[in-house]
Design a protein around this nucleic acid. Structure first.
Length: 182
DNA sequence: TAACTAGCTTCTTATATAACAATGCATG
DNA sequence: CATGCATTGTTATATAAGAAGCTAGTTA
């Protein structure tokens, strides 16, 4: 099974915002430095997900560990903007999860050089001097898998959890097929 | 020369390596 | 008291995605 460790979602509010004003009204939770980056950062707690709001009303949520958590923070974010008269309920346009970052464990170790050949050099990248993980981009899946010698796997780029699970299942079957060949 | 495109900035998260800095402790 | 080794800690490396804005390069 794959475990979700990070969710990236984005949404839009149908209003143009003056981020200088928003940052001034919500000093305690907003961090805005237009010289550094055009987005205003909202953080409700030290280890809570980060919400980045833009001038156009679009925003992104990063660091949630489930879709439900991303949704809860979105609600809290909208309620806060409502209370301060920055937006109204009618301004809420859309909201979608864009990327699930998941973790899985094969419970066995790998020789990554051999694995790169087994999976196919055209779908793998393995340069241990640059990065210790093997990058696997299967043709039939939208996800990218990072495979480590310890057997741990990171699956990223999935727009839905099911896509990450399917990619991991397929990876597992490829491993079994490779073992059967020997 | 204008318009367009591409690539970088910011952030999050798991994963694992090396290289580095800084500190702790022991021995000469 | 100073030097050496060990341990701990931080940073870099790579992956995906969204967003706006800047720059650099290409093309008409």
């Amino acid at each position: 099974m794959v475990q979700v460790v990070n969710v990236v979602a984005s949404g839009a509010l149908d209003v143009e915002l003056d981020l200088e004003v928003v940052a001034r009204d919500l000093v305690d939770i907003v961090n805005y430095d237009p010289e550094l980056y055009p987005g205003a950062y909202f953080r409700f707690d030290d280890d809570a997900p980060l919400i980045t709001l833009y001038r156009t009303g679009k925003y992104i949520i990063t660091g949630a560990s489930s879709e439900a958590e991303a949704g809860r923070f979105r609600n809290e974010f909208l309620a806060l903007l409502n209370r301060h008269g920055i937006v109204s309920d009618a301004d809420d346009a859309w909201f979608t999860v864009q990327n699930y970052v998941c973790m899985a464990n094969m419970e066995r170790s790998f020789n990554l050089s051999a694995l790169a050949i087994g999976l196919g050099l055209e779908v793998t990248e393995y340069e241990p001097e640059q990065f210790p993980g093997l990058v696997y981009r299967p043709h039939d899946h939208a996800c990218v898998l990072l495979v480590f010698a310890t057997g741990k796997v990171v699956i990223t780029g999935a727009p839905e959890i099911a896509a990450a699970e399917a990619a991991f299942s397929a990876f597992r079957e490829s491993i079994e097929a490779l073992l059967a060949d020997e």
